[in-house]
């Protein structure tokens, strides 16, 4: 698992325990107690002079999971991409108090869509290796695949031969390969079936419970995230709610964002 409190699936300390403490991570951890993992101030994004994300501010403490919730077209993915510096924005984004460029090694990203030619000749191992830092041991590929519930033998399979669920897990394993401290996931359950979704939820729970990795994930599925995340940020162009799901996801706020239909999926919360 991706940090100093690393454990294997069996709960034993990972053999690569010592390598997690390389200089930049150690330095950042020294500040982790006082600085939020992610800090966003007055972030706005405009396309063709029209604001699609307006004046969003929030903080995520280290080890928390934050879900960006909202209907299609609410600006969730746009906000996430702006936070990652993939699109222009105004405002300020800080990771452990630093500008994104200074902490590239500490973050990882799993995009919503990974469109690639399924006939392209590349193995899972080769694909994973593309993201692996040179100072990371090659054996970590197998470890990360096991972490996401895939057998090490899958390394020699062609990437294009994987099912949607397996591919999604490989993408997450690849994102975890350098032990990031902040993981950004864009609709991680979008391309997988119900079984795959359960595995994904289990994996995120494991990351939450056994590591102090901070996760920022985009989702439109209240049912999936409400029992999983520490905080939700409801978005509909602008920030509609922010806080723990129990308090932020009120009947009123859900109705404001999704309309009446979403009540059907808001399983069991006291609103």
């Amino acid at each position: 698992m991706p940090n100093s409190s690393s454990t294997t699936n069996n709960g034993r300390p990972s053999p690569e325990h010592e390598e997690h403490g390389h200089e930049s991570h150690a330095h950042t951890r020294a500040h982790a107690d006082i600085l939020p993992a992610v800090s966003v101030r007055n972030l706005s994004v405009s396309f063709d002079r029209q604001k699609v994300v307006s004046d969003v501010s929030f903080e995520v403490p280290q080890g928390d999971i934050l879900a960006l919730l909202g209907p299609n077209g609410s600006g969730k993915t746009t906000l996430l991409r702006a936070m990652l510096g993939l699109i222009p924005y105004t405002g300020e984004v800080r990771i452990f108090g630093k500008h994104l460029h200074a902490v590239r090694e500490l973050i990882a990203y799993v995009p919503q869509r990974f469109d690639f030619d399924r006939n392209f000749p590349i193995t899972v191992r080769e694909f994973m290796d593309l993201a692996r830092h040179r100072h990371s041991p090659p054996g970590r590929v197998a470890v990360r695949l096991q972490d996401v519930g895939l057998a090490p033998e899958i390394q020699s399979a062609r990437l294009g031969s994987l099912s949607g669920g397996q591919l999604q897990r490989v993408l997450i394993a690849q994102a975890l390969i350098n032990n990031p401290l902040v993981l950004f996931l864009d609709e991680p359950a979008a391309n997988i079936d119900i079984t795959g979704e359960a595995t994904l939820t289990g994996l995120l729970e494991q990351l939450r419970d056994k590591t102090d990795v901070t996760i920022v994930m985009v989702s439109h599925d209240i049912a999936m995230v409400s029992g999983l995340v520490d905080k939700v940020l409801c978005l509909n162009g602008q920030m509609m709610c922010f806080g723990p799901p129990e308090t932020a996801l009120t009947e009123k706020s859900i109705k404001e964002i999704f309309g009446d239909r979403k009540r059907l999926f808001s399983h069991g919360h006291q609103h």
């Binding site: 993939l86 690639f116 590349i122 993201a131």
Partner: peptide, 10 residues
């Protein structure tokens, strides 16, 4: 293969 992920990685 994965432009956005590569960009985030630096």
């Amino acid at each position: 293969l994965a432009e956005d992920s590569a960009a985030v990685a630096g």
